[in-house]
Simulated scan of single mutants.
Amino acid sequence: MIRTAVLALGLGVATAGVAAAQGPDAGAAARAAAEALSDAQVRLDQAEGAQDRVQALTGAVRAYEAGLAAMRDGLRAASLREAQLDRELDARETEVAQLLGVLQALGQAETPQRLLHPDGPLGAARSGMLVASVTPALAEEAERLRADLSEVATLRALQQDAEARLRAGLSSLQEARAELSRAIADRTDLPRRFTADPERTAALIAATETLDGFASGLAALEPGEGSAAAPTIADRKGALPLPVPAQVLRRSGEADAAGVTRPGLVLATRPEALVTTPVPATLRYRGPLLNYGLVSILEPEPDLLFVFAGLGTVFGEVGEVLPEGAPVGLMGGSEALSPSGEGALSQRSETLYMEVREGSRTVDPLTWFATDKG
């Protein structure tokens, strides 16, 4: 499935992403996405077990998301550039009409007529000198007009091609997500720290009314030590990547529109974006919780919990020790082409709420995670 998609999306990224964005950063992102897709295909071909397959498909989904983002940004840049040129041409409509009229008159004039002048040969000479001085400026202006019109035509053709590639890439991305879900369901080779106790978890949910209460109760429950334990991650504090490509909507302690403050981060993501664990961690809980939708709670080390709330799909089995970069879920919503016809994919319309707990208290997630998004 991925091999054909790699070629289709890779070529689409290389053409639409680079040309439309008209910038080195966008071009580098496009090329990196294409290379990541190719690498995912190689790893998928070499996969010997379920975990290898999950890792390869996780890389493929992330590469698709990055590639589509590069194409989407390039398409948006092309649309903005076309609109700018249209405005400039509209503003110069009178000037352009006059220019075309002069050029047409000069083009139709015959040589004998150019030599005739009411003031005789001297007037004709002066007129010829005037025309000679004006003609280069007219030619330069005509060339600028020709270049602008040519760029508009190129941008329109590019957008049509990019929209077709976006549709193909989006279809391939959906297939990769479905294949990833199946591979995770088939995975049985992850180490476990403990086996889930549904009755204790259900009792804890019934006894708590807040996320804080549930997380505190979960941390107090001793899961029982198994053969696998996650190493300390203290040396990575402040440098962890976000679990999903996102923009920070609200930081810890910032009030929302209703004046409510929360101790965690609110992240804006794209629909159906893949959420992964930033470090090796034990999955302590996954499922619905209160009014937070689907929640995944990870324990990278004792007395440290990462809480991800607001997911649309959750992966994994409670008690598993997930390797770094393993998928823990997908965001909700549905990613589709914009009905406006502009070719843009859905923007960051989903929100992930993320808390970090050290022992019994919540801490600012940015003490652990690094982000340059505002």
Rank of each mutant, 00 (worst) to 15 (best):
G329P: 00
A336Q: 15
Q347P: 09
G359F: 06
A228W: 02
R270V: 05
V328H: 03
V295I: 10
E358K: 10
D256C: 12
A268I: 08
E254L: 04
R357Y: 09
R357G: 10
R286P: 01
V275I: 10
T351F: 07
V260D: 13
R236P: 00
P323V: 12
G264D: 00
G341I: 12
A257N: 09
G293Q: 11
D303S: 12
V321D: 01
G238P: 02
R348N: 11
M354Q: 12
A336I: 05
S360P: 10
P278E: 01
L305S: 11
L265T: 14
V307R: 13
L352R: 13
V248Y: 03
E342A: 08
P278L: 10
D303Q: 14
M354T: 13
A258Y: 04
L290F: 11
A228R: 08
L283E: 05
Q347A: 15
F306L: 12
L330S: 04
A229H: 12
R236M: 02
T276F: 00
D256W: 05
A309D: 02
R250N: 07
L304M: 09
V356N: 07
Q347M: 08
G329S: 07
R236E: 00
E355D: 10
S340A: 15
A326D: 04
D303L: 06
V328D: 01
G316N: 09
T269R: 03
A229D: 05
F315T: 06
G343Y: 11
P243S: 08
Q347S: 15
A273P: 06
A230M: 04
E320F: 03
S252C: 09
V279H: 13
T261F: 00
I297C: 04
S340F: 02
T276N: 07
P231I: 02
L289C: 09
P263F: 09
E301S: 05
A268T: 12
P231L: 06
A257D: 11
L267S: 07
G264M: 04
L298M: 12
P231W: 10
L298K: 14
R284K: 14
P241V: 03
F306W: 09
G253T: 14
T269Y: 00
G359T: 14
T282G: 05
G333M: 00
P278M: 11
A309S: 13
P280E: 15
P327C: 06
F306E: 09
A228F: 00
L345A: 14
L249C: 01
E299R: 12
G293L: 04
V328A: 02
G316I: 01
T351L: 11
G333L: 05
S349L: 15
E301H: 07
A230Y: 00
Q247G: 05
G264V: 05
A344T: 15
Q347K: 15
L265W: 04
P327Y: 05
L294S: 08
A326V: 08
Y353A: 01
